[in-house]
Write a protein that binds this DNA or RNA. Structure first.
Length: 268
DNA sequence: CTATTTGTTTATCC
DNA sequence: AGGATAAACAAATA
């Protein structure tokens, strides 16, 4: 579920814990969310550290703790964060519980495609080096036409749907955002990267920005409803129709992902 | 019982 | 070599 704005929404769920110190940590040791990151015992090194701040980069979250320590979480397909009372019992898919002074912060993920990593190497801002080396975010200055041209040159025979899902170039874009961008730019999802014109890339750039901005404002805050004239509210409904021309929408697997598009207006 | 899932990594093929 | 594609991961839901 979580793409750019949903990740931002969940990141804020831990805000109530800012300023509090970690007293204990509960983990589901067998959970796959720890598989990628071995040294599990070292997770206890987070005890005694205070939660200072947090930030998102695309679909990744970074929690900055005191003394140069950090914790990073990727929500995968079904992950979520919540804050709860200290007494609240753990639920089935809770993999990590940080017990602070007045509340607990919980990472839960039924399908366990999420990932957790942590460490104590960081610069003076508490930010680890690997985080600084991430590609430019969609709403930053460096996300520009030049970068999109590089992406299309590198991935010439990749269809534009799959291109938009590459986090190296489009951090935070996921399945629904990619479909929304293509629908709003009227570009067919199967078009090859190498066939895209400068104008089309420019349109994609603009829509990446505007869709991200609106999603961050609406979903990233209270998870409100996106505009009804977006594809989003029609894409999963059986019998869903294009909000522009009423054409029945097509749902088709493209590059392994279910893709929804309008066969009539996405004709570029 | 089968097919589906808003993500990413790995293996395999080209 | 490096890009494109399919499979794998796991569990809920229809």
């Amino acid at each position: 579920m979580p793409e750019l704005a949903e990740v931002e929404y969940y990141r804020k769920k831990w805000d109530p814990g800012i300023g509090e110190t970690i007293q204990h940590i509960l983990v589901n040791h067998n959970s796959a969310v720890f598989k990628k990151f071995k040294a599990l015992p070292s997770l206890n090194s987070l005890v005694g550290k205070k939660l200072i701040s947090s930030q998102c980069h695309g679909k990744q979250m970074l929690f900055i703790l005191s003394k140069g320590t950090w914790l990073s979480i990727h929500l995968g397909m079904t992950g979520n964060l919540r804050a709860a009372n200290l007494e609240e019992p753990r639920e089935k898919h809770d993999h990590l519980v940080l017990l602070l002074e007045k509340r607990s912060l919980i990472f839960s993920d039924p399908r366990t495609f999420g990932q957790i990593k942590w460490g104590s190497q960081s610069n003076s801002n508490g930010i680890p080096t690997w985080w600084q080396d991430l590609p430019p975010t969609i709403l930053s200055e460096d996300f520009n036409l030049e970068r999109l041209v590089i992406a299309t040159k590198r991935h010439k025979k990749c269809n534009v749907k799959a291109l938009l899902l590459k986090q190296e170039y489009f951090p935070g874009i996921g399945n629904w955002m990619a479909d929304e961008i293509l629908w709003q730019t009227k570009i067919h999802p199967k078009r090859l990267s190498m066939q895209l014109t400068k104008q089309e890339l420019h349109d994609i750039l603009k829509k990446c920005r505007s869709i991200s901005r609106v999603a961050m404002r609406i979903i990233g805050t209270n998870w409100g409803d996106l505009p009804n004239d977006w594809l989003f509210n029609h894409r999963w409904k059986d019998g869903g129709r294009c909000p522009i021309d009423g054409t029945p929408l097509i749902r088709e697997k493209i590059s392994g992902r279910t893709t929804c598009y309008c066969p009539f207006c996405q004709n570029r």
